[in-house]
Write a protein that binds this DNA or RNA. Sequence first.
DNA 1: CTCTGGATTAGCT
DNA 2: GCTAATCCAGAGC
Length: 193
Amino acid sequence: MTILDRSFYSRSPVTVARELVGKTLVRTLADGQLLQGIIVETEAYGGAKDPASHAYRGISKRNAAMFGKAGHAYVYFTYGFHHCLNFVTRKQGEASAVLIRAVEPTSGLETMSKLRNKSHPKDLTTGPGKLCQALAIDRKLNGIDITQQESVIHVLDDGATFDIKSTPRIGIRNAKDRKWRFFAIGNQFVSKR
DNA sequence: CTCTGGATTAGCT
DNA sequence: GCTAATCCAGAGC
């Protein structure tokens, strides 16, 4: 069980997105409670050259975290309801990130159910907005370092491997030729479209 | 300053 | 399948 450090995140978002599938996401709440899940679906977003990326039009107040150091969180709010969790990749200023789209909950299910007001495990973390609600993630966590053991969000490698498939990203109109969505084949917690 | 639409979801038809 | 819910960054004036 090793924590993923800055060198892991300092590579291309496509590589990081593919390798994050199967890793364990750990969220530590204010009261010390641990919520955990296996990452089963991710998407890579580039910087200035990726028209689908928030960073495409340059830095702004909203996307500033993407331009920071690798291994930090980029959390944004969309559709007036939902938060999405991303991990910043590459070097500072290169603005790329990996969106966490779904996880398979493994620990703290009861608390997740309360946060989501849903009882079935498959209603908890099977989408980017749902996962943030289940793990109590909002913009207060934007920009935090995720490479430390004591970080309220961090990722562990427990050696598990999955068969992975790649497809175009969901909800994106342009750049459909880039198959930058990765997910664990056959996993029940991959978001379904 | 105002307007538009989105890296979504739930609930109803 | 369709659409309402509802915030805010970015674009255009």
